[in-house]
Every structure is written in C-alpha cells, then in structure tokens.
Design a binder for these strands. Structure first.
Lengths: 317, 317
DNA sequence: TTTCGCTTGACAAGGCTTGGACAGACCGGA
DNA sequence: TCCGGTCTGTCCAAGCCTTGTCAAGCGAAA
C-alpha cells in the first residue's frame, strides 16, 4: 500500500479538538507546548485555527507517553520523532517488566472477598463456578497471583483467628487443587523445556502451595513433575536424578518442627546434583529465610517471585 | 419488495422531519447547514418543502458524526461524501484504539502465526490444544481481542487470496465457535445485569463473529442471548421484546446483497423499542458505515470497540 | 383550523486565538 | 534542612469568528 517514494505532504488535517481527543492532551497543553517548546507547527486554517497533520498527532501522542512515563516535557520536546519513539518503547518495556507482577486489579480483590464469603457458607458449587469463571476470564497466571494465592493466605489468617474451621479450609484448598492440577496437565509437555520438580517436605501435608507453584511453572513453559506432598528427601533426590530436573521447588506452608524441616532441606541440598537449583517457597519458608539462604537454598515467597526466577533462569541460559 | 417501475433517480424522498429524526440533527440545523454551507441540495415538493433522498440523509449523518468528533462544520461541509466517509471511519477507529490500548503482545502474534500454520496443515488436535492453552493462559478477553479476531481476519484474507480452502476456514471457525460458546455458557447469568442479544442478519451464515461478540459481552458482565445466525428481523424483534434486551448486536461479515442487509436492519431499527441500542460490527458493517449511521445504527468494527461501548453504557446509565 | 414547513434576520453561546498570570512540583544551593 | 528559582500545567481575559437556536411572518398541507 505504500508507494516507494511516499510523498512528504500531510494531506489530512485535524482541528485542535480532534488532536486533543486523539492524543489525550488538553487543548491548553497543546497550545502551551507549541508556544513554549515549539513541539509541532500545525498549519492554520483561514480563520487562524490550528490544523494538525497526522504526523503531528503521532508526535504529540509520543510526547504524552513520554511525559506520563515521568520525563519532563522540556527534556523531550526537542527530540526527533524517531528518537522519541525509541524512548517511549524503552519506557513501556521497562514499566511492563516492573508492573507485570502487580496485576492486582480492584476486580480481583472483589473475587477474593466473594470467594471467602462462599467458603464461609460452604457453597461448593458457587465457589467452583466463581473460581473457574475468574480463571478463564483473567488467565491462569494472573489468577494464581492475584486470586488463588491471596484467597489461601486470607483463609489461613481466618483459620488461625478461629473464624473458620478445617472444613472451610478443605473445601477451598481441595477445589483449588483440582483446578490447578488440571491446568498443569492441560499444558502438554514442551520440547526442549527444562523440568521443575514440585513437592513439599516430609511431614508437611499442605499440597496446595506446591500445586500453585507447579501450575505457575507450567504456564511459564516448564515441564512440571508434580509429586504431591510429604515426600522424604531420599525419594526426592532419586526422582530428581532420574528425571534430570533443573529446579526442585519445595513449598513450606507451616513449620511444626523447625529442625526437622531444616534437616530435610539440608539433606536435599547435599545430595542433589550440583546444577540443580533448590527453591523454597510459602509462609513457612519466609520464616526460615536466614537459615535457608545460609545453606544455599533460594527463597521465593510469592508466585511472581518464583515466576521471575524461572524466567531469569531460562533467559540467562 | 419495491414497486416494479422503480424510478432511476433517488427513489425514496423524505420530509425534513424524517431527515431530522434519522440524522439526529435538528430541523434548524438541517436548514442552516444547507443555507450557509450548501451541504446538500434536497429536492423540493410542489409547495417548496424539502424532500431528502437517502443519499442526502447518509451524507448528513456522516457530517453529524464528523462534527460530534470535534470537527467544525465549516471545514467538513465541502468534502465529498466519500472523503467524509473515510474521515468518519478514521475517527471511529482512532477512538476505539484510544479506549482499548492494543493488547497485541509479541507473544500473541506468535500464537496467531502458529495457528495459521496449524490450520494450513489441517492439524485439528494441535490447533485445539494451542488455542485452548492460550485462552487459559492469557484470559478470555485478551484472547478474543488479540488472538481469535486476528486469526479470523488473517484467515479471511488468505481465503480471499486463494491460499486457503473452505475446509481450512471451517476447521478454524468451528473450533473457535465451540470454544467461544462454551465460554459464553460458562458465565452464569448475573443478577441485575443488562441483556444483549447477538445474532447475524437473515441470509448471513457466518456465526463466528456473533459468537466472539457474545463472548466478549459475557466477560464484560452482560447477560448474553446468543441466537445463532440467519434470523429474520421479525424473530429478532419478538425475542428482544420478550427478553427485555438493552442492546441488539448484529455481526455482518460479508455483504452479498447490500439492499437486503440494509433492509433487514431498517426493519429492525424501526420495530425495536426505542430504548434498545442497535450495534453492527464486522467487516461487512464497516463497509456500510455511512448507511448504518444514517439509520441510527451504531458501528463498532472491533471487539475492543464493542467492549468500550458496552462499558460506557453500563457506566453512563 | 391547525399543523407543518419555509425564509429571513437577529442573537446568544461557545470555540479558538493570543497573551498573561499563577500555583504547585521539582531542583539546586546555602 | 530550608529557600529561591525554574518548570509545567491550568486558568483567565479579551477579541474575533463560527455555529446553533429563536422569533416573526407567511404559505402550504392535513
């Protein structure tokens, strides 16, 4: 559609109202930027009204993007449109890297509250419908980060405070566990993808954290070996060797005997092959951060943290 | 349907009241625009009353759209109807782009390309797996906007260019249709949510666009009445009355008989209750923008555009 | 008769322009 | 830490022009 020697002329011209509408800048700003910084030089109509070309509008939109990314107009006003475009691309990429984990929309907070209400009234069908619908709408990874994990955390708090019984906790965690393991299986094995093993330490029967981690890894494109809960260290080591895994992730929700858990992990670290990364997560792991770091076990207490680490490993080689 | 001795020239002529009603402009404006800018030259009856042709009304509707987009009548009055139509299309597209920031990640572009490759090799299982996996990962709304719609568009292009056969097209559209209708049903009816009816005009058997629109509306929290394809206008009106719908959305993919489609829509517009908004979408609707605007039918040629409009309606009351 | 439509002229509201003023944010220096 | 200067977006005033509405008087249509 482009002629090789595209004319430099800009035939289409727009009044200031349209320019304001399209760029998202106020008419005042359009005028003052022109006056102070000579940002664009729109043509004029017979009555002196500004008439913006498409290129002008594009440039103004870029300037708007640059300033709302925190740059001052004075510094970007003189840049060429190309330089501006590159700058804005860079800003967008940087911001996405930073804010992607924080996808906690107000909507997701509502879902969390509603889930707890349904759990409280033991409405299994309603809960199932709500959670599956939400997962479908917002996508698995966002669901895990901003719904599943917060729901479980709140559930734990309420249970601790005596406002909920084990029955409530079971209802929610078994439902989420079903959903999440289905998700894991739904992602077929990828060729050339590294493998991650997910489990809990011996004695810990709270599978749900491990399941969330496994699903997050599956979505990230890893092959997931999900071994369930309460596995002795020796078993984990054997399986890891046999399957040539790259990462072993351990979910530690609740620590009953400190030394026992730490002993398990010490055995794991010692017997796993050198190239295998050991990552611990969950509330229990957060409470043991110092000890774990001392024995070369990484700690990633949130889903986004785990995801970021997995991504880094694949990119870094 | 028309009299056999149809006059060659502007067959239908309408008094100023009808023109005002259809264009949304006041009678005063119609007269002053004619007097000051020579915007149209309606014929005159024996007593000197203006009689507007359909083409006049279309042009006036376009002018109305242009002025409410921020352009001044003085600047657009002299444009040819074609130029005007192009301008209005551009404005609509720009507005849609601004309300819905393009979620076209590089990742989604990969999925689109891979989907077409799988379709080309008629790999139904692979396509199914890829599309369902992507929908689960990125969430339904993002999937509809940046995967499903682009895939269908590209598919249409390739089919037009003779590089794909109807078999390829059927494979993809039936798979997407299954996925999307399942999604629609998965969203239980919401209390207090307005209802949208989704269908295609009589004679159009391309359901897929309607299905996408329906799913997008369902995700937005509307109750969706999905009636499939090829429904006569009377049926649509009856159903809309019975179900007390707020919006009727018509997907027009391919226009075989212009007049027939326009006739259908005219009947719809005339018989639907006053409070019901009529929205047309799809490639076919885009090609009929001028005529549709003239008969008070909204045009939203993209999924994000439709979603933005639905959101506006619920917020604005 | 009553309603509708036409024309003309007048007029008020509002948009756009220029120029100036100003308050808040930000920054560098004491 | 505080203070003065700069940067930046918003607001205001005045003038000019565009634009929509209104009124009055008249004629045609229902």
């Amino acid at each position: 559609m482009k002629s090789p020697h595209d004319t430099r002329q800009a035939p289409a011209r727009h009044p200031i109202a349209v320019a304001a509408e399209r760029t998202g800048l106020s008419q005042d700003v359009l005028r003052i930027w022109e006056r102070r910084y000579g940002v664009v030089e729109p043509g004029r109509g017979p009555g002196g009204q500004r008439l913006y070309a498409d290129a002008d509008i594009e440039r103004l939109a870029l300037l708007h993007a640059a300033t709302s990314a925190g740059r001052s107009i004075g510094q970007v006003a003189r840049l060429s449109t190309e330089a501006l475009s590159a700058l804005v691309d860079e800003d967008i990429a940087a911001r996405e890297r930073r804010t992607a984990p924080a996808a906690a929309t107000p909507e997701s907070a509502d879902v969390v509250n509603e889930s707890l209400a349904l759990a409280r009234s033991l409405d299994a069908a309603g809960l199932d419908e709500l959670l599956r619908g939400t997962a479908a709408t917002m996508g698995v990874s966002a669901f895990l980060e901003s719904v599943a994990a917060p729901v479980l955390r709140r559930l734990g708090d309420e249970w601790h405070a005596g406002r909920l019984t084990p029955a409530h906790e079971h209802l929610v965690s078994s439902l989420l566990h079903d959903m999440v393991t289905q998700t894991m299986r739904a992602f077929a094995r990828w060729r050339d993808a590294p493998t991650i093993m997910v489990t809990t330490p011996a004695g810990d029967r709270h599978v749900i954290g491990a399941a969330l981690a496994g699903a997050a890894a599956a979505v990230e494109g890893w092959n997931v070996l999900y071994l369930g809960a309460d596995l002795p260290a020796e078993e984990v080591v054997d399986a890891a060797r046999a399957a040539d895994v790259r990462v072993v992730a351990i979910s530690i929700i609740y620590v009953e005997h400190r030394d026992r858990v730490l002993g398990e992990l010490r055995v794991l670290r010692a017997r796993l092959p050198d190239g295998v990364t050991l990552i611990a997560g969950g509330a229990g792991a957060a409470a043991l951060t110092a000890e774990l770091l001392a024995m070369d076990v990484q700690v990633r207490s949130s889903i986004p943290g785990l995801v970021a680490e997995l991504r880094r490993m694949r990119e870094g080689g």
